[in-house]
Design a protein around this nucleic acid. Sequence first.
DNA 1: ATCATTATCCGCGATGGGGC
DNA 2: GCCCCATCGCGGATAATGAT
Length: 621
Amino acid sequence: MEERDLPVGWAMATVGELTNVGPKNETADETEVGFVPLQRLGVTYLSRHTHEPRVWKEVKKGYTQFQNGDVLLARITPSFENGKAGIARDLPNGLGAGSTEYIVFRPFADALDPRYLLAHFKTRSFLTSGEMVMTGAVGQQRVPKAFVLESQLPLAPLNEQRRIAAKLDTTLAAVEACRQRLDGVAAILKRFRQAVLAAATSGELTREWREERPDSIDAAGLARYLRTNHQNSGGHRAGNAAPPTEGVHDLSNQDFPDGWQLVCLRDIVKPERPITYGILKPGPELSNGIPYVRVADYPGNKLSLDGIRKTSQEIDELYKRSRLELGDLLISIRGTVGRLISIPAELIGANITQDSARLSIQEVVDSSYIMIALQSEILQSRMRRAIKGVAVRGINIGDVRALQIPLPSIEEQEEVSRRVNDLISLSDQLEAKLSAARKIVDRLTSALLAKAFRGELVVQDPSDEPAWELLERIRASRQADAAAGKPSRRGRHKPLAHSELSSLAPTPVPTDEPSRVFLVRTGDETTQGEKSPSRVSKPKPTDNLKGWSPMQKDLIQILEQHQTWISASTACEEMGISDGSSSDDLELFYSQLKEQVEDGLVDVQRRVDEDWLKLSSLKVA
DNA sequence: ATCATTATCCGCGATGGGGC
DNA sequence: GCCCCATCGCGGATAATGAT
């Protein structure tokens, strides 16, 4: 945001000049304090952390220290990206300690309301620009302290900050309530699916269907056929499969409708294609080999062929018993137990690993009914009870074969799967609407925060002491302290350790790169004391201020025109986002980009110090 | 004795966290 | 900032075991 766009009485300031960073507590060793590990800190503006009671001497070393009213910011991935930050509250004796991954800020009471600072940490623009400067090894990325200290926030007069915070409290509470309702709906949908599956397998779903057909054939004949067919063909070879786990499989004391039969899964599959698992050692990846399905290839019961691996023809030949045909069912038996998919045409002739069991259902049975039954809680719980192992948990193939399936006549099976498919696709539609609603609510939060920092959330009061006066005061007192050779306010606060800042700072950012709110100090900061305070308050990027301009073009449009890699700054420029644009435009740009990357429409590549973008091959095709 | 299958151990990358 | 640790969810190797 440009200084000149600021509401009356506001000023731009950095987080570092308004807070003490990493403050220390001084208290007796035996003082009762609160310990706040990362898990106990929330991710929303409103969430309140909890704490564990500790004695000060136990936690005073090796952890961060804070007191009520301090603002905690988690700096490590993924907590930072999730916006894990909060205000220390309700600590025993007002004191606390916590994870070393916090950066602790103690706002100057006469200049900055902690809630206002917290709101700044929750803005999309702060989080997005923070993500881009994170450093460290994979999985251990942290946001540099210097980035946060230097991050700019539009500072409202203190009174107005308080009004903004109060307004955010109530408005975001409403948003939160909305979100919780949506979560409630999600839970209902989940229960609904379970209930549908349960009703399907218990016969409840087709009760009136049966009542309308009192003479319909029962499943006794079918069950007899399945068992004898299986026996006559020799059944599953004995092998040395472990005997089924005791006391798990018997469903005979459960109530099923007249005419339904309990049939073992082993009898339901084609005798010539018994229930089996697959390749033990698939060997190295062969790009033109035989694909084989691992449990990881069907997360959430959804097959994804993206990461499918391929093995040699020789190995596949060794495991020809576990080759796949159209419509075979796959059930995971190790790692995650009970995942299910049906094999599509693309995977005909593919193989599987030792972690899935293949079920090739006989023609006289409706395989989608079997899939429904296996997904129902009654059978999933049987599987869970058969799980063995500590490090890697799984069920034996013998337990899969012994699973008892409640089986109606083929007509009723087909009726059940028709109804279930209708109901599930209905709940899929609801799910889609739900996730759209969730997205809107998520945007609402960031939109509200953006509005707050534009000064549009509450009315300005001309009688409030202007923010720039607060700043002048702070800067003056800091200068005085520096001149007197004292450490800055409240004891040990270092006045933005310049050498430290520049050494920690990432490579200098070209000024035409609009993605960074991060600013690198370039001047000789040792002379800061002599500088006029207002000079410090305007470390603005360039003079190339075209002013505010709305986003003119869709990112996709631009990438379509280029057909090749272009830099993020080029894209911004063409979209009509200049350096002078408001942070909202940037915010919009990045949220748009993030979505498009997530949707697989845009590829991103990191080059030296900038992101380059290209339309993904998917989208081009 | 040999083979198929299961049981079990170890390793690895991702994730989530803590210590100094 | 770097290093270490635990757990999860899987991959892979090998020992153990039962059937033939």
